[in-house]
Design a protein around this nucleic acid. Sequence first.
DNA 1: GCAACAGTTCAATAATTCGGAACTATCAAA
DNA 2: TTTGATAGTTCCGAATTATTGAACTGTTGC
Lengths: 107, 107
Amino acid sequence: MPAFSHPRLGDVALAAALHALADPCRLAIVRRLALGGELSCSAAACHDVPKSTLSNHFKILRAAGLIRTRTAGRDHLSTLRGDEFETRFPGLLATVLAQPEETANAA
Amino acid sequence: MPAFSHPRLGDVALAAALHALADPCRLAIVRRLALGGELSCSAAACHDVPKSTLSNHFKILRAAGLIRTRTAGRDHLSTLRGDEFETRFPGLLATVLAQPEETANAA
DNA sequence: GCAACAGTTCAATAATTCGGAACTATCAAA
DNA sequence: TTTGATAGTTCCGAATTATTGAACTGTTGC
């Protein structure tokens, strides 16, 4: 794996960004990354998501310009592209992350 | 058509809301509604989207709690559920609408 | 009545997504 | 180096979702 391809944020469409965030598993990953630090694919594990699906989620997040992934041995560590994303889509990530942790069911 | 079913905002998941906004055609509809007023299905017309597709887009927006639709003769007029949506997802709609009009291509 | 129009629903097709199995690459130990 | 376990990706068939023409419902106006 000779490094990953990361889009320039200018090439990311708003629809792609929203789509990437519109998935509970991907959003959970982004939330964790927003706390800081790097996250390996396996450490991300939303409940029982298979490896291949998880790998695909990371790919989508990468394509949306949300994360940057580097290879470290056999791990692929990802970090948020927070500042860049903020520049491209001002306020978007912060607003989404500010939403209640999900459990949408008020009476 | 005995009126439409509109979810309580408390029953709308964040993922559903983001998904609804993650489509250029639907987002264009929401942008127009955000300017105020009601919009009929046919008046919404994004370029060359067929009626059935458009109808489905409205259905998705309705299910996401973004719009309310009422019947007026043979027209189905929709309005934004702006305040309710804002209460459920603080800042979300405003932030999305504040994003550049789309044409993501800087060098 | 009839014809035109606004939208929805249905059904078939197209496009995405999911996930198991196979594969690649790294690390650790002997 | 060889063996074995681990981290991730890729491949590809299955399940899900999206698209859209055609048929249908209800409305308006003649």
